[in-house]
């Protein structure tokens, strides 16, 4: 009888929490939509593809912020994923003491407040980028001369910009992706790994073809968590991205992200600009939301195709 009652209570609690979460989500959408009505009325969907942000003339376009957000996020993931994978792979088999120490060190990266990353970025990273990394990329490697992608790497630099922000973001999302990859590797049944080695796989082949595929759901989950964090990260980016409302020319350009634009402009914004900022917020929310939905859908589809029942 008592067990039955606690069961009921628990059920209710779950239901209520689920409803609160759903209502909150809905509330965000409604509030952001209502507050941005005048922007949509004025510019329509053109708001999304316009790169004109001129508060004096009362013209607003979201494209530079959107592009900045996407570029920094992509750079962050391109750097963080291979690094996290290599670290997880190496540390799982490393001697226990070393593995524990390094593992905890990476975990601790997640405990650093993002404003600290921002300050560190500004005072340490930016000078290093300007004096060493970017000169190396431009003058030694001459990456800007590469066909096709060279155009987006850029020749002129000052330490700030999309690339620097991407690196900081990469360090910030690294612990999340790493933690999940580590669990995925640990959860692979030892006998499956032995089977892979048993047909003559090397360590690397076992990792990328067997372990990674076996844990693909977890891996993608980890990447999406990283993606979500990188998309919305504000403070750290604010310090190093240069905060220019123009379309970035290349990855060394100063730029902005949606989150940075919001944080920078709300204080002095009025009427139409305010509404444009809310519209940007709505875009960001929709971006994160649709990525999560796409991820869920993809995971669902792949698990059905693989004939698995684990959910």
């Amino acid at each position: 009888m008592f067990a039955l009652r606690t069961d009921r209570i628990f059920q209710w609690l779950c239901l209520i929490s689920a409803m609160i979460a759903g209502l909150l989500m809905l509330g965000f959408f409604v509030q952001l939509s209502l507050s941005s009505v005048s922007t949509w009325r004025q510019f329509g969907l053109g708001f999304l593809v316009s790169n004109d942000w001129d508060p004096v003339a009362n013209r607003f376009g979201a494209l530079p912020s959107i592009v900045g957000t996407l570029c920094t996020t992509v750079i962050a993931l391109l750097l963080a994923i291979p690094l996290a994978f290599a670290a997880a792979l190496y540390l799982v088999d490393a001697p226990p003491l070393l593995s524990n120490i390094l593992s905890h060190a990476i975990d601790l990266l997640a405990a650093i407040p993002s404003v600290i990353y921002g300050m560190w970025g500004l005072f340490v990273m930016v000078p290093i980028m300007q004096k060493h990394v970017q000169p190396f990329m431009v003058d030694v490697l001459r990456l800007h001369r590469l066909p096709v992608i060279g155009r987006y790497i850029g020749e002129y630099y000052n330490g700030f910009g999309i690339f620097t922000a991407g690196i900081i973001l990469a360090i910030m999302v690294l612990p999340y992706i790493y933690a999940i990859l580590r669990d995925v590797i640990k959860m692979t049944p030892p006998v499956l790994r032995e089977a892979a080695y048993g047909v003559g796989c090397t360590r690397w082949e076992t990792a990328k073809d067997i372990v990674l595929r076996y844990g693909i759901r977890g891996v993608l989950g980890g990447i999406f968590i990283g993606l979500g964090r990188a998309l919305g990260e504000t403070m750290a980016v604010l310090f190093v991205i240069g905060n220019l409302m123009d379309m970035p020319e290349d990855i060394f350009s100063g730029a902005t992200t949606i989150a940075a634009t919001l944080a920078n402009n709300f204080a002095e914004a009025d009427c139409l600009q305010r509404s444009a900022l809310f519209a940007l917020g709505l875009v960001l929310l929709l971006m994160s939301f649709s990525i999560q939905v796409a991820a869920q859908y993809y995971l669902h589809a792949t698990s059905a195709r693989r004939g698995e029942s684990r959910s």
């Binding site: 006998v191 499956l192 048993g198 047909v199 003559g200 067997i210 595929r213 693909i216």
Partner: peptide, 16 residues
């Protein structure tokens, strides 16, 4: 290991 194949107690199909 190419020359000496191994079959385990529990089947171990690869995830493919």
């Amino acid at each position: 290991r190419r020359k000496v194949g191994m079959i385990f107690q529990k089947p171990t199909p690869f995830p493919m």
